[in-house]
Design a protein around this nucleic acid. Structure first.
Lengths: 107, 107
DNA sequence: CGGCATATGTCGGTGACCGACGTATGCTGT
DNA sequence: ACAGCATACGTCGGTCACCGACATATGCCG
């Protein structure tokens, strides 16, 4: 799972959001670092729907245009939790190793 | 930066290693989850060399065959540290949001 | 009434990763 | 003796997530 997808799921973790709101939220979470392109966004949304990690929460017409709101499913929440734990473990290990070798040789 | 690359860099963080040793180490770090294919391995090695994140540490002939050992460069160490911090922050945020919404609605 | 934020979507290209294949040596078990 | 496995390095074609550009439409502000 790549960073944009992970951030997308994270953006949906606290409350349901529609596409454009997700894009803004992802930028906020990553402190401006990751700007989600619409190509990535709607592609990922479609993929995650098919994988069952997210689902359509609500469909409403706003300003005569359709707005779809998405939520995490239970498997989606589980997948995000698992992924978060995995990458946290990897980050810890990386940091630990950098410290260890930093003591021996600051090359 | 994707997971295999991150793990490769992590495998080099404590001491220099040659290709095959990296592959084994990556598997160990990820507790067997990620098995680095040679295609990914040597491709990534080549890419990281060109990016200046790693460098050839030693070249020696073992059993009449060349063995190249790689190390992290200073930029490589910095990149790994930065990446580790970034993903740790993302993981924290994901976990926090899951907890927050878990209290309000365990949907 | 021009331009920007909001909002959703498509399409072609790139690049990291995957899977399969190729090659070679040394050790171990039978 | 030799089959098979671990060790060790590498190439090549395919896939798929992501990117960048384009298309479309509304509401609001100046």
């Amino acid at each position: 799972m790549q960073e944009p997808t992970l951030l997308l799921l994270t953006a949906l973790a606290d409350e349901p959001r529609h596409g454009y709101a997700i894009a803004r939220e992802v930028e906020a979470i990553s402190t401006g670092r990751v700007k989600m392109r619409t190509g990535t966004l709607y592609g990922a949304l479609e993929r995650l729907l098919q994988q069952g990690l997210i689902e359509v929460h609500k469909e409403e017409v706003v300003d005569s245009r359709l707005r779809r709101t998405y939520t995490l499913t239970s498997p989606g929440r589980a997948a995000l939790a698992a992924e978060a734990e995995r990458i946290a473990a990897t980050a810890r290990e990386a940091t630990r190793r950098l410290k260890v070798s930093g003591k021996a040789a600051t090359a």
